[in-house]
Simulated assay, not measured.
Amino acid sequence: MKLLIASAAATLCLSACAADLAQGYRSTPDYPAYANARDGHLDAVDCATTLGLMGYAASTANDISRQTGIDIDSGNPNRSDWISGMVMSLVFAIAEMREYTVADACAGAAAADSSANRRQGYLPY
């Protein structure tokens, strides 16, 4: 019950200032990855590629960790990256007054991946 009330309060707060938040997100370094994943050009391929490469990186890191006994970081998004990417996608859906879809979640995953890449020292493009 507490979670339901908290999520309703968070949704109300987000909807009140979604347009301003969306404008602010457009200036973040992860926005180009989000926009590319929502541009309407091969979005499903972008989504499958992003999630597939994350899965492959995690699987490879786990295999190497098991074989060597050394903890290997896959470079995938951490919890903070995922939360920020998903919040970004939710804010854009609310600001554009449309329902949240799988395409939004995929764009959020692309933003999370971009954030993880920056943290690892990789520059976009």
Rank of each mutant, 00 (worst) to 15 (best):
A95L: 03
Q120E: 15
N117G: 13
T101C: 11
Y34H: 04
G121N: 14
D113V: 07
G108W: 01
A111H: 02
D104N: 15
A18E: 02
R26P: 00
E99K: 05
R26Y: 00
R66L: 13
A44W: 12
A116D: 12
Y25M: 15
S59R: 02
A6C: 06
D73C: 07
D63H: 04
A95Y: 09
R66F: 08
L21Y: 02
G121W: 13
A8C: 03
A19T: 10
A22L: 06
D43G: 03
C47G: 03
V102I: 09
W82Y: 03
A95N: 10
D30L: 02
K2G: 08
S89R: 02
N62W: 01
Y31P: 00
R118F: 06
G40D: 04
G121S: 10
E99D: 03
D63M: 09
Y25L: 15
Y122R: 15
T49W: 11
A8D: 10
D20F: 00
G75M: 10
A37H: 04
G69R: 06
D39N: 15
L53M: 10
V91F: 01
S74G: 14
A116G: 14
S74F: 11
I83E: 08
S114R: 06
I5K: 11
R26W: 00
T28D: 01
A111K: 02
Y125K: 15
T101V: 09
Y122H: 14
M1E: 10
G24Q: 08
L90I: 09
T50M: 13
A95E: 13
L4H: 11
D81Q: 01
Y34W: 09
D30V: 07
V102L: 01
M97A: 07
A109K: 14
F92V: 14
T11H: 05
W82G: 01
T101Q: 12
L3W: 02
L14A: 02
D71R: 14
H41A: 12
A57M: 15
S15R: 06
I94H: 06
R98D: 07
A48Q: 07
M86D: 00
S84P: 04
A16K: 10
C17Y: 02
A61C: 10
C47K: 00
T101R: 15
A8L: 12
A112L: 07
D81M: 00
Q120V: 12
T11C: 03
T68F: 08
A110R: 05
N117H: 11
D104R: 11
L42A: 14
W82Q: 01
A35L: 06
F92H: 08
R38K: 02
P32W: 07
R118D: 10
A61H: 13
L53A: 12
N76C: 14
M86K: 00
A93P: 04
S115L: 12
A48I: 06
N76P: 00
R79C: 08
T60A: 11
S80W: 05
S89H: 08
L90M: 14
N78M: 05
I83D: 03
